[in-house]
Structures are given as C-alpha cells and as structure tokens.
C-alpha cells in the first residue's frame, strides 16, 4: 500500500509530505504517526508541508487531528514550511488551525519542539527523561 515515509530522529518523528495526497493516504499517515508515537515513545512530531501546493479542509483537519492526538499521547506537533499562498487560502477558507504549532522551516521547527519540551520539564509536567 502507498505510504508517506516517516523518519525517526532521536525522540522525534519527521514527515515530509511531497505528494498531492488523496484522502486515504492522509488518513493512513494519521494512523501511522499515532502508532509510531506510542511505539517509539516519541516526544515530538515535525510535519514539513513546504512542498504542498494546497491544503484543503480535509488535509487541514488531518493536521489538527494529528496535533490533538499527539498531545494526548504526550508529544508536541509542529507543522513547518506552509507556503504564503496556502496560508492565505486557508484563512479565507476559515481554517486557522488554532491548536497547531507552526514554524517557518525544519530548523525552526526542531528548535520549537526542544523549547516546548524544555518548558514542560521545568514546569514538572510530562514524562521524566531517560
């Protein structure tokens, strides 16, 4: 079956979406990610959508769902690289994805995940490390 590859980097999962996904492919990605968060006890999920030319309400909902599910499984999700035209269209569509953290690129996204986990540690929440 067709799948979007997911990379593991230390305690983070990395996904780069490079194809125009049909709906089932998006749902499979959602399933795979939640599965892997639990299996690897991942603390961060980074989704790079810089190659996506459009994000419609279905993909937008998938991104929101992944962020919400990851949160329940104690992981931080960051969506990176959304193109300006895509962002303008999503806002016009009425989809502002309030629960999703965003960053300009993969580098900034990784730093955002690290900072979020650091804040959690200092606040005494979340799993202890090691």
């Amino acid at each position: 079956m067709e799948r979007i590859p997911i990379l593991r980097l230390r305690d983070c999962l990395l996904v780069t979406i490079q194809v125009d996904m049909h709906d089932q492919l998006a749902l499979t990605l959602q399933d795979d990610l939640t599965e892997l968060i639990v299996r690897h006890q991942a603390r961060g999920v980074l989704i790079d959508i810089s190659a996506l030319e459009i994000v419609d309400s279905f993909i937008g909902r998938m991104l929101s769902n992944i962020a919400a599910m990851a949160r329940i499984l104690d992981a931080v999700t960051v969506v990176v690289g959304m193109r300006p035209a895509v962002a303008i269209t999503l806002v016009e569509l009425g989809l502002e994805m309030p629960g999703v953290r965003t960053a300009l690129n993969v580098d900034a996204g990784m730093r955002l995940i690290e900072r979020a986990l650091e804040e959690e540690r200092q606040a005494g929440h979340g799993r202890s490390k090691g």
């Binding site: 990176v80 959304m82 193109r83 806002v91 300009l104 996204g109």
Partner: peptide, 12 residues
C-alpha cells in the same frame, strides 16, 4: 487580522 492569521500558519 487575516494577515496575522496567515503569518501564524506559516510560523511567524
């Protein structure tokens, strides 16, 4: 407001 929202989606 839309500009602010779009910038946020991009990570700024």
């Amino acid at each position: 407001l839309k500009t602010v929202a779009a910038a946020r989606l991009m990570g700024a």
